[in-house]
């Protein structure tokens, strides 16, 4: 690597340094916008005891669900985990811990983590099981709970296009949690559909500036659809 060129040529290099017990923040919503190859590499490495922060945990046999097969995940921090039979089994067997976190709070925890804000107050979850044991403070007569930021040893991100400097653009709703995840990793790895030269992306339209990104790898994506709903072709 030289200068700002972040491109790595192998998945081994992309996830080099990942160790047992680390925290990994993953972009994606359901199966949309997930770093498929980086997840595959974690499976191949066999790293265990991971804390994975991601809105969901994939499905059986795809996405983060792959990491359940060899019991690599010790704890999930997610807002919704209902799509996965293996997940249910490991949870009920006590092999997996889950910290259910409201979706907006989860996004903000990542954003705050990347932005150097250690904690923030939110009305979300006040008076519910999510608020139990958390500090409460009133602002303008309304109670808010204190939520702490999240950072990861690694962040794994899926981009549409990245340039070699790590500037990223996401496509459609595959953006989701990826921009926040990108900011919150000590080592942020971007898996992109396409890698371009600096200057090919419009600087005004970059979603994630390269400063947040440590490694970029070109991936190939299956892009599996979780709920395929179509309407009839109109003539």
């Amino acid at each position: 690597m030289a200068g700002f060129n972040k491109v790595v040529s192998s998945y081994d290099d992309a996830m080099s340094g990942l160790e047992n017990g680390m925290t990994v923040i993953a972009g994606g919503f359901g199966l949309c916008g997930i770093p498929e190859g980086l997840i595959g590499q974690i499976k191949k490495m066999g790293t265990t005891g991971l804390t994975v922060v991601s809105n969901n945990c994939g499905v059986d046999g795809f996405g983060l669900g792959l990491l359940l097969e060899d019991k690599q995940i010790a704890k999930m921090v997610s807002s919704y985990v209902g799509e996965n039979a293996l997940f249910e089994k490991q949870l009920l067997d006590g092999e997996l811990e889950v910290e259910l976190t409201p979706q907006g709070t989860l996004a903000e925890k990542m954003r705050a983590g990347g932005a150097g804000i250690p904690a923030f107050y939110t009305a979300t979850g006040y008076g519910t099981p999510v608020g139990e044991g958390k500090e409460v403070k009133e602002f303008n007569g309304r109670p808010y709970i204190l939520e702490h930021a999240i950072t990861g040893d690694f962040a794994i991100v899926k981009a549409w296009k990245a340039d070699t400097f790590g500037n990223c653009v996401y496509r459609h709703t595959a953006q989701n949690f990826n921009p926040m995840a990108a900011t919150a990793g000590k080592i942020t790895v971007v898996e992109a559909e396409e890698i371009v030269e600096p200057g090919e992306l419009n600087p005004s339209e970059i979603h994630t500036p390269g400063i947040y990104v440590n490694r970029v790898i070109k991936g190939t994506f299956e892009k599996r659809i979780e709920r395929r709903v179509v309407s009839k072709e109109t003539v």
């Binding site: 359901g30 199966l31 459609h172 709703t173 953006q175 989701n176």
Partner: peptide, 24 residues
Amino acid sequence: DADMINAGKETVTAITGASIFSSA
């Protein structure tokens, strides 16, 4: 398009004048 889904994870379209952004 696998990159266009709604919060129920169903495939959808965007109307003319739509905007797309991060979860935060």
